[in-house]
Simulated assay, not measured.
Amino acid sequence: MTAETAPPAWMHQQITAAEYDSWSEEQCAGIEIVDGMVVVSPSASKRHNRLARILANSLDAAAGPDWNADTYFDVRFQDVPLTNRRPDVVVYRADTIDLAPTRPEHVLLVVEVVSPGSETTDRIVKVSQYAKAGIAFYWRIEQAATGIPLIYTYILDPATMTYRTGDMFTGTVTVTAPFPVEIDLGKI
């Protein structure tokens, strides 16, 4: 294998938090770091990105002054070995907007929009990881064949640090916790 065809070093060795923090936003886009290893995410579809944007905009409008909702930025779970996740939507404390990295204790809710290639990670791995980190709410959006999204909500049980299954919605989410919000995802 020539130097021109050799995979970059980051593909086969752990990277540190300091190394990752030196990378540009462009280098960090589309990846997560799990136990120090880079995990490349497939490019999201327009439908996926629109769902995430509609959710983030609606959550941000309903959250009040104490919380912000945004899409696609890192939440750092641990420094050694480095583990960063990049949820599709994150509701986080407004007073931490300038803190980097964002930590789980800053986060109230994460949302993952399931896409081909992310099924196991979004349905099993991240549910456990987000709960163990103490994130109070997790929502999973399934892109159904009918075109109308299915929304599964989960609520943290602090005694067991696992999620209890909350409500399931088709198309429109209407919840009172973590704050009152109604979101119509059927108009994609």
Rank of each mutant, 00 (worst) to 15 (best):
L99I: 11
L51Y: 08
D74H: 00
W139Q: 05
Q78T: 00
T165V: 12
V34R: 11
I31Q: 15
G134T: 04
N49W: 07
E4V: 14
T146S: 11
I148P: 05
A9L: 12
V107F: 04
A159D: 09
H48N: 06
R50S: 14
R123Y: 10
D21V: 08
A131D: 05
V40G: 12
S41H: 09
L51C: 05
E4Y: 12
D70H: 03
G64L: 03
Q13C: 14
A144E: 09
I97V: 13
G30Q: 15
H48F: 12
G134F: 09
W23C: 11
A144N: 10
A52W: 02
A6P: 05
H48D: 07
A145S: 13
L59N: 02
V181Y: 03
P149V: 08
V173L: 06
I33G: 05
V89D: 03
T120I: 12
A100Y: 15
I188M: 04
I151W: 03
C28E: 15
I155A: 09
T96A: 11
Q13W: 12
D98S: 14
W23D: 08
V114C: 03
E32R: 05
A177W: 01
P81R: 08
S22N: 14
Q129W: 12
I54F: 05
L82M: 01
A6F: 10
T71M: 05
L99F: 13
D60S: 07
L59V: 03
E26H: 08
P87K: 03
N49V: 08
G171R: 01
V125G: 13
E119K: 15
